[in-house]
Simulated scan of single mutants.
Amino acid sequence: MSEMLRAPAEVTYADELDFLESVDTGPKPFSWRLSPRMVRLFVLGSERADGLSREIPQKWFGDRSFVERAIVTLASDRGLLLIGDPGTGKSWLAELLAAAICRNSTLVVQGTAGTTEDHIKYSWNVSMVIAKGQSRESMIPSPIMTAMERGVVGRFEELTRSTSDVQDALISILSEKYVAIPELDQDNIVFAQPGFSIIATANSRDRGVNDLSSALKRRFNFVRIPVVTNKRSEAEIVRFRTEELLRRHRIELDVPPTLLDILLQSFADLRAGAASATSDDEKLESALSTAEQIGVLEDAILHSQFFGDRTLRAATIAGSLVGSLARRSPEDLAILNKYLHGVVEPRARKDDDGWAGFLDGGRQAIASLS
């Protein structure tokens, strides 16, 4: 684990998964490693009423009903499609579910404009085909086919980024549960084993790029993941991810609650401004998601660690915020400058509490980019 830049969930939380498996007495669908109740507990954390001898921390912060519906879908023979705005935790939830169900979250296809049907089904080792001809030995199974053969969960990230003909390759997999290999005369069908399922994610902002066909939609259960708007829940997500970041980088640095409140409030202010905007030119190009908040805080922490005095300050957070959100020039810079003068400056005059430093840091960052 220490040699991995980022360990998958089944490695990071191996001790928790081992413990839950050892005390799990509930019914398990197919070849699942944990029962649905324990899968939910792994994702959402334990409570005193669960009666466990150790605490299981919460890893995904959202409505319990979304997680329960996702688990029930995976216990059926339908695919699961997690859809929502960027930064809502779709991929993280998919990884946690796969880790809990089959202890393998790495069988992933990444949807892009360059994704082909081979990435979903199989391809060939050309040198082996030339030497020995086409056979199962010279075939390279895709992550989805590997998941079928093992009876585990396969993942398809950003499904709507791939073209329609590539998407439609999933239809037969989700309905017939097998893949035919017409190039072979014998042993030419790969059947899905019990426990196989697919978790796909889709960005709601990609609507219209490559819409799913009606046939494919019928084979997925949709779970829509909303943007986190509850300030307390968002603070928990940012704090959880920040602690994980500090452990990964072996950084000992305190994140004062006051500075976290400033970050959360600044994003809430900018979202409110975007909601009241009458044109796209008055909105930041950024989605202002929770994931982007985490990115801003990560940038500020690393800057403080490597180029500062290892103390996180409001000015550093403001500089990171401007650097992360100012993607268009001059439009985004003008929006951020208006926010600093119209909202942050009066707040800094009325009650400092870190806002004065945030204002100074923001102004310096904008000046350097202008």
Rank of each mutant, 00 (worst) to 15 (best):
S2G: 10
M4K: 08
P8Y: 07
V11Y: 11
T12D: 08
T12R: 07
A14G: 10
D18Q: 11
D24F: 06
K28G: 01
R33F: 14
F42A: 00
F42W: 01
G45P: 14
S46H: 03
R48H: 15
D50T: 13
S53C: 08
E55F: 14
E55Y: 07
E55M: 14
Q58P: 12
Q58R: 15
W60F: 14
F61H: 13
F61M: 05
R64N: 11
I71F: 03
D77R: 12
D77C: 10
G79T: 01
L80S: 03
L80F: 03
L81T: 07
L82H: 06
I83Y: 10
G84A: 01
G84T: 01
G84H: 01
D85S: 13
W92V: 09
A98I: 02
A99F: 08
N104H: 04
T106V: 02
G111P: 04
T112L: 00
T115N: 03
T115S: 04
V126R: 07
K132C: 09
S135Y: 00
S142R: 00
S142N: 02
P143G: 04
I144V: 10
M145S: 11
M148P: 05
E149M: 15
D165A: 11
Q167Y: 00
A169K: 03
A169P: 09
E176C: 11
E176N: 14
P182S: 07
E183V: 08
L184W: 04
Q186N: 10
I198R: 03
I199V: 15
R205I: 10
R205S: 09
R205M: 12
D206S: 03
D206N: 05
V209P: 00
S213D: 00
S213V: 06
L216K: 01
R218Q: 11
F222P: 03
V227N: 12
V227W: 03
R232A: 14
I237E: 00
F240V: 09
E243N: 14
E244G: 07
R248K: 11
D254T: 14
V255Y: 06
T258W: 03
Q265R: 08
F267H: 07
F267A: 05
A274L: 05
A274E: 13
A275Q: 02
T278L: 08
S279F: 07
D281T: 11
D281L: 14
L284T: 06
E285V: 12
S289P: 11
T290F: 07
I294S: 03
L297K: 05
E298F: 08
E298N: 12
I301Q: 04
F306P: 08
A315E: 15
T316A: 15
I317L: 07
A318W: 01
G319A: 06
G323P: 10
S324C: 10
S324H: 12
S324F: 12
L325C: 08
R328Y: 04
R328V: 08
L333V: 09
A334F: 12
I335K: 04
L340D: 04
E345F: 07
E345A: 12
E345Q: 09
E345K: 13
P346W: 02
A348L: 05
K350D: 13
D353L: 09
W355F: 09
W355E: 05
G357T: 15
G357W: 15
F358G: 00
R363M: 07
Q364F: 12
Q364A: 14
A365T: 07
L369M: 12
